[in-house]
Design a protein around this nucleic acid. Structure first.
Length: 406
DNA sequence: CGAGATTCATGTGAAGTATACCTTTAGGCTTAA
DNA sequence: AAGCCTAAAGGTATACTTCACATGAATCTCGTA
């Protein structure tokens, strides 16, 4: 018994001796800063478009674009918070703002579920299944229309949804106002995909994006500001080696100015420094962190891939290692893959499919596959691994867990 | 020797199929009036 | 009668397969110099 306690004490002790973090949550992705840097202009735009709400008028539908980590959601939520503060002071005004991230797994699947989720947020109740979609619609409308009120629906990552469902859903939403007698509704769509609006029905397009705001990526300097600000409350004083912030910002700026990425990088860097028992965060920790994030991403992909994919990847790795330096081709991979399938008693997919799978790996950046023509030797893909040996080794371990190869 | 035809091994697109997972519907059962 | 549940029926997305055709440079063919 005593032994266990000592062990625990040690763990707690080492936690206590944490030199690095003061408040790590500041660097976690759901953290809401109370001031948003370098987005003032856009926040103002959003605010001025939504301002009519305060007079009880329906604002235009609004559409926000921008790549990931450009502060769209953050800005929107901020404006929403400020608006609500203001509205609370005005008695006569009934305003509801509902935020829904369409990408969340439990929601994203269908029109039905999005509506169900919205209804739940508005205080209604729908069974998880069973009702006709039309019935859910009318319940939704009834719920909104039950009072004299203004409703703003913020639909985040809406492009994800529309890819899965048709744009009828959006069309219906934009026309909701016609079915309402007392209440009025505005829609704010947020999309990561800059070309999203080009892909949807023009009727929807015109009514959904009465106003549009594009959020540009942050540049390296702006990222630095953001990181600096967060670092102050996240880290203990003096733990940052000079240049750490700048380097983090530079890394993220290279990746289309994604602030989320920058913050993640900074956090992971801190975690690595902490784990190594370092008293300061050094530049070299950033490289490790960057690699770790990269690695995690790859592992995530590999792990979530079905067995067939893992077999193909296993075949590729095996062949590349065997043929040191020499390029390998689709045919080789397919042959070896067939062997592996037999060995593992799995069904053999057609070459057509394997070809697609290889292409997918290429898209994920796990391998480099270029289509070449070998003249009379035919056409094929020339395949190379695009990962460091370390990562390959790890992947082999992951694959080995589920499949007998190598 | 060179232009054009041929060839190889596989890429690529379209369309069809199997499967799993949903939604809808309808019928039956329960409940409450 | 209304509400609820469930099983069967109908839909739809996904992951493949099948079929058919496209590719593009090495190689072959054959006419010509």
């Amino acid at each position: 018994m005593d032994g266990v306690n000592k062990e625990l004490e040690q763990i707690f002790d080492s936690f206590d001796k944490n030199f690095i973090f003061k408040n790590k949550s500041v660097l976690q992705s759901n953290y809401q800063p109370n001031e948003i840097l370098h987005r003032k202009e856009y926040i103002n735009q959003v605010a001025s478009i939504l301002a009519p709400l305060l007079r009880g008028e329906r604002p235009s539908n609004l559409f926000l674009y921008g790549k990931t980590g450009t502060g769209k959601t953050l800005s929107m939520l901020y404006v929403m918070k400020e608006l609500m503060k203001r509205v609370d002071k005005i008695d006569a005004l009934k305003l509801r703002i509902e935020y829904l991230n369409c990408k969340l797994k439990k929601v994203s699947d269908t029109e039905y579920r999005i509506l169900a989720e919205l209804i739940k947020k508005l205080g209604g109740n729908v069974p998880a299944t069973g009702l006709p979609t039309q019935a859910v619609y009318s319940q939704f409308i009834e719920l909104i229309d039950s009072e004299d009120q203004l409703v703003v629906l913020i639909l985040d990552e809406i492009d994800q949804t529309v890819k899965k469902i048709s744009d009828d859903f959006l069309y219906n939403l934009t026309r909701l106002n016609q079915d309402l007698s007392k209440a009025q509704i505005s829609i704010v769509g947020i999309s990561n995909n800059l070309t999203f609006l080009d892909e949807i029905d023009p009727r929807v397009k015109s009514s959904l994006s009465e106003e549009e705001i594009v959020f540009p990526p942050y540049n390296a300097l702006q990222l630095q500001d953001i990181l600096n600000k967060r670092a102050v409350s996240a880290f203990k004083e003096g733990v940052l080696q000079e240049g750490v912030i700048a380097k983090c910002a530079a890394y993220a700026a290279r990746e289309h100015g994604d602030a989320r990425r920058a913050i993640d990088l900074l956090r992971v860097t801190g975690e690595i420094a902490e784990r190594q028992g370092s008293k300061k965060i050094l530049l070299k920790h950033i490289d490790e962190a960057n690699e770790k994030i990269e690695k995690d991403k790859i592992f995530e992909i590999v792990k979530s891939e079905p067995k067939q994919f893992q077999l193909v990847l296993g075949s590729i790795i095996k062949l590349v290692e065997d043929k040191k330096g020499e390029a390998i081709f689709t045919g080789d991979v397919y042959n070896y893959y067939q062997e592996l399938c037999t060995k593992n008693k799995l069904e053999i997919l057609t070459q057509r499919r394997v070809s697609d799978i290889i292409q997918e790996f290429d898209m994920h950046g796990l391998i480099n596959a270029v289509v070449i023509s070998k003249g009379r030797g035919g056409r094929t893909r020339e395949i190379k691994l695009a990962m460091t040996n370390q990562i390959v080794k790890k992947i082999k371990e992951i694959i080995k867990d589920s499949i007998d190869c190598f």
